[in-house]
Structures are given as C-alpha cells and as structure tokens.
C-alpha cells in the first residue's frame, strides 16, 4: 500500500493541473475560432466556448500514461483506449449534430478494446450474495455499459457545472468503493477521473466560462464506465450515477424513443427574473430538472446544487453497497 501512495499523488496532480492550466488556453483558441454557443439560461444569452473535451482527454491520457509506468496493467490500456475512442465520438458529434443513435453506437464501438484486451471479468459482483456467472451475457453487458454511462453523463450536461460537479462526486464514490473492495490499482487509476472533473468544474461552474461539449461529457462518462468494468464494480457504479439514470429513465419513458436532445422541446422555461420553471408544453420530455422545478421556479445555481445533493445521497448509498459486496452471507 505505501508504494502506491506516490503514484496516487502524482497522477492526481498531473490530472488536475494539466486541465487547470490548459483550459484558459483552450478558451482563447475556441474564442478565436468562434467555436462558441449561446448559454440560453442567461438573461443576456452570453456566448460560451465549447468544447472543453480536448483538455479533459489530455489530462486523462497524461495521468494514465504516467500510472502505466508504475503499474503496467492491461486495465490501464483499456481505460486509455476506450476513453480516447469515446472522446473521438464526442468530437464528431460536436462538429456536426448527428442522429440520436450515433452516440450509443459509437460508444458501443469504444468497448472493443476492453473485450480484445480481456480487461474484464466474466462474473458480476453482487451485493450481499456474491458473484454470479452468466457467460452468454458478460460481453453484451460490457457493450451496453459504456453507451449507458456515456450518454447518461451527457444527458445531465444541461446546466452550468452540473456534469463536471456530478462526476467529481460519482468519481469519489466509485474510487472509495474500489478501495473498499481492495482493488487498489484500479482505485488509483480512477483518481484522474475525480481530479480532471474537479479542475474542469473550476471553469464550468456557474457562470460557465467553457462547456464540456459532447467530447467532454462522453469522455467522462465512458471513463466512468470502463473503470466500473475493469474494476469489477459494475453494480456499485450504477448506484453512484442513479440521479443521472433517473434523468435518462424519465426522458426515455416520456419520449418512448432515443432522440438527440437538441431535437426536442425544452422541458423548462424561463420566468421574468430568469429563473427556470417547468414548461406547460404537453410534448416536452420529463427530465430531472423539470421535476426539480415542478414545485416552483429556481435559479440555475440552485438546481445545480440540488442535483449535487442527489449525487451525494447516491454516493452514500454506493458506499453502503460496496460494503455489502465485501461482506458475504
């Protein structure tokens, strides 16, 4: 354990500072190239640079490569490869909006390195009861996990700072769970997820100076998914992102199909003082934000903090689940 402390501190520092230092430069480049989008939740409709994905992937690659020097494990290569493919899928979607199926399919392709490298277990770890082996389902489950985590994180990237702040909390939960399940090396490999998200949150929080874009959100979501797979904590990881799962579940059960979020009616509207309120549009989807503001208008910042409270609640349930997985009956 003591010989793992130095790599842990080193990769955390590299992940944090590479994003923290590179973002101001990226903002300037994006502004110069006029790669900005309107922030519709601001009264003056301020233009915000997008995407922040390149800085995020840079931080992940730099930190994971350094970690690979300390622990040359195939799981780290799987994290690097899958996350990089997810980033490329996001870049393509940032450049040109594609159909609702593009991202799930692209992220399914991103699972290929995990399968080819054999960086997964054919069993699933369940709380209380132990392991179960379903050989026919092990690969389909992997193919589903990355599209689910990637799109789930992308779907909550609707307000300033929410996606990155949410990933800090979910990342802490999964890392602690990996320590509880004594999977120390993968726990250290998941530290860059926390610190990259934390550094990005500094610029993404309300009022945002940069948006992650699909390239940023899919990268964070796919990294979360691949850590869940290679760390063998798939069920535990699902609990940590329950607020985002609720959002996707509400969306899909109201829309009854997979659809690109830019193609739907806005589930919230603005009051005169520019708070967010639930829309009265009958064919607008039901989302987490729409439910949060159902009882009355709230500011963007208040909604963001409410989502963080939900994430902390889920993180608490995640830790309990991790202990339940360790203790067998």
């Amino acid at each position: 354990m003591p010989d793992q402390i130095i790599p842990a501190i080193l990769v955390s520092a590299i992940a944090f500072f590479s994003v923290y230092i590179s973002i101001p430069f990226l903002i300037k480049v994006l502004e110069r190239k006029n790669l900005t989008v309107r922030d519709y939740n601001k009264l003056n409709g301020q233009m915000v640079p997008r995407p922040g994905g390149p800085s995020i992937i840079m931080g992940i690659i730099a930190s994971e490569l350094v970690l690979y020097v300390f622990f040359p494990k195939v799981e780290i290569i799987a994290i690097l490869a899958t996350t990089s493919i997810a980033f490329l899928v996001g870049v393509l979607d940032d450049r040109k909006t594609r159909g609702g199926w593009f991202k799930p399919l692209g992220l399914a392709v991103a699972t290929i390195p995990i399968i080819l490298l054999g960086a997964y277990q054919p069993t699933l770890s369940f709380p209380i009861i132990g392991h179960a082996t379903i050989p026919l389902l092990s690969i389909p489950i992997i193919i589903f996990i990355i599209p689910i985590t990637g799109n789930t994180v992308n779907s909550i990237d609707v307000l300033n700072g929410v996606a990155s702040g949410f990933m800090v909390i979910a990342g802490c939960a999964i890392t602690l769970s990996l320590f509880i399940t004594q999977n120390y090396e993968i726990a250290i490999a998941s530290l860059p997820l926390i610190f990259v998200s934390l550094a990005f949150y500094k610029y993404h929080k309300f009022p945002s100076r940069i948006f992650p874009g699909d390239s940023g959100a899919l990268t964070l979501g796919a990294m979360y998914g691949v850590i869940a797979i290679v760390g063998h904590v798939e069920i535990i990881a699902a609990v940590a992102i329950l607020p985002a799962v609720v959002n996707s579940f509400l969306f899909l059960s109201s829309m009854k199909r997979i659809v690109e979020h830019r193609q739907i009616k806005n589930p919230v509207t603005h009051t005169e003082d520019y708070k967010l309120a639930a829309t009265n549009e009958k064919d607008a989807p039901i989302t987490l934000v729409r439910l949060i503001v159902a009882k009355g208008p709230m500011t963007e910042k208040e909604i963001g903090f409410f989502i963080f409270k939900l994430a902390i609640f889920s993180a608490f349930l995640t830790i309990i689940t991790a202990f339940m997985t360790v203790v067998k009956i």
């Binding site: 369940f126 709380p127 009861i129 069920i235 329950l242 799962v245 609720v246 349930l317």
Partner: peptide, 16 residues
C-alpha cells in the same frame, strides 16, 4: 432514488 436502490439490491439477491 432510494426505491431504485432497494430494487437493485433486491433484484440482485433474487437473480443470483
């Protein structure tokens, strides 16, 4: 969210 969590745990125990 709490009910979802309970359903996950209960479902896992039953499934296994």
């Amino acid at each position: 969210i709490f009910i979802m969590w309970i359903l996950i745990i209960a479902g896992c125990v039953l499934l296994v």
